Amino acid sequence: MSEEKSIAIFVTVTVLGMLILSNRASAAVYTVGDAAGWNFNVAGWENGKHFRAGDVLVFNYIPAAHNVVSVDRRAYNSCTTPKGAKVYQSGRDRIRLVRGQNCFICNFPGHCQSGMKIAINAM
């Protein structure tokens, strides 16, 4: 391989690495429900916000009282937990958004139906 080609590959890899790191560094962090945290009537909290893939949602709540379940749109609409759904229970969960639809519910009985759910479309 020629020295010029080696330098070109090195520069390309370096630039790509810097772009990836700068994209991660610019990710926004959102606390779901703001100061009130992940609680009843949080539905609609996401309105007016612009989310991107890589942004982080922070769910603050009392673990004995709530949880966070990552679900698809169908489970979000029906307030059900599909088999194999990821359930978070720490009370200080940090979840990175993926491109497209991101839906979350609390699956404690009656909580989702009472407004403990959000649906976010990340660009």
Rank of each mutant, 00 (worst) to 15 (best):
V98Y: 08
E3F: 10
F51A: 12
V58N: 13
D93V: 10
C103G: 04
Y30N: 10
F108Y: 05
N121F: 06
E4R: 15
V29A: 13
G91R: 06
K86Y: 02
A8R: 13
A119P: 01
H50N: 14
Q89K: 13
I20V: 15
T31L: 04
K83V: 14
L97K: 09
P82C: 09
E46H: 05
N41H: 07
K49L: 12
A36Y: 00
N102F: 00
H50I: 10
R99K: 15
N107P: 01
A85W: 02
L97Q: 09
G84D: 11
V15S: 11
N47A: 12
P109I: 00
S2D: 15
A64E: 08
W45M: 05
N23W: 13
R74P: 00
A28Q: 14
N67G: 04
H66Y: 01
L57M: 13
N23H: 14
R24I: 04
D93P: 05
N102I: 04
N102M: 06
K86W: 03
K83P: 08
E46K: 07
A8S: 14
A8Q: 12
N77T: 01
V58D: 07
M18S: 14
R94C: 08
A27V: 07
F59I: 09
G33M: 03
S6E: 12
A85P: 03
N41D: 11
L21C: 13
Q113I: 03
S26V: 10
V68C: 02
T12D: 11
S26A: 13
F59M: 08
R24K: 12
G48H: 01
V29R: 15
N41G: 08
C103E: 02
H66I: 02
C79T: 05
D72V: 07
L97A: 10
A85I: 04
Y76M: 00
F59V: 08
I118M: 03
Y76V: 00
S90D: 14
P109D: 09
K86I: 08
S6N: 14
A27H: 11
N60E: 11
C106Y: 03
G100D: 07
S22C: 06
R52S: 14
V98D: 09
V68H: 01
W45R: 07
A8V: 04
S6V: 05
A28E: 13
S22A: 14
A75V: 00
P63F: 01
P109M: 07
K49H: 14
I105D: 00
H111I: 00
F51Q: 09
C112E: 00
R94I: 02
G17E: 08
P109N: 13
A27N: 14
